[in-house]
């Protein structure tokens, strides 16, 4: 048994300790956000945050995660009430097939928590581990900037 804090909730999971987090999230915890893309850490479709850091969940065995905090797409918001980064991607219609976007959003969340106002180069650099095949990149970059604006506006408002 491994104990994880998943999207703020303490979860006890029974998968074997060598199971990559991706399969624990998808199959045991029934969360759809993280996607299988390559299993090799090359495409970023499985990206989630562990203690705030973006990681490839396809290569992160459960035994590394006892007591640690995992955030997935589901932790950022819901269909009815999307989080700021999700809302920005929706507003910019930054998806075609959408399969890669969960990873893009998680990587963006990590970027904006570290650097609230990134320029184009910084966005491109941060998203470099993430692949998109539909060619939605222009909109993704726009969505990241959109999210940065809404997050700083929100931060300003709570001051």
């Amino acid at each position: 048994m491994t104990h994880l804090i998943v999207n703020g909730e303490l979860r006890t999971v029974s998968s074997d300790p060598d199971t990559p987090l991706l399969y624990v999230l998808r199959d045991e915890l029934e969360l759809n956000g993280a996607k299988f893309g390559c299993g090799l850490g090359q495409c970023g479709a499985c990206t989630v945050l562990i203690d705030g850091q973006p990681v490839f969940s396809c290569l992160t065995p459960l035994l590394l995660l006892e007591g640690r905090e995992v955030r997935t797409l589901e932790g950022l918001g819901t269909l009815e009430n999307p989080g700021p980064v999700q809302a920005a991607f929706i507003a910019e219609q930054a998806a075609q097939c959408g399969y890669c976007i969960a990873g893009m959003i998680m990587r963006t969340q990590a970027l904006l928590e570290r650097s609230p106002n990134p320029d184009d180069d910084e966005i491109r650099g941060a998203l470099e581990p993430q692949l998109c095949r539909c060619g939605t990149h222009m909109r993704i970059i726009r969505a990241v900037k959109h999210a940065a604006r809404s997050l700083s506006a929100a931060a300003e408002a709570t001051k």
Partner: peptide, 8 residues
């Protein structure tokens, strides 16, 4: 798009 981007 909204469902895809919120994990539905």
């Amino acid at each position: 798009i909204p469902a895809k981007l919120t994990g539905v």
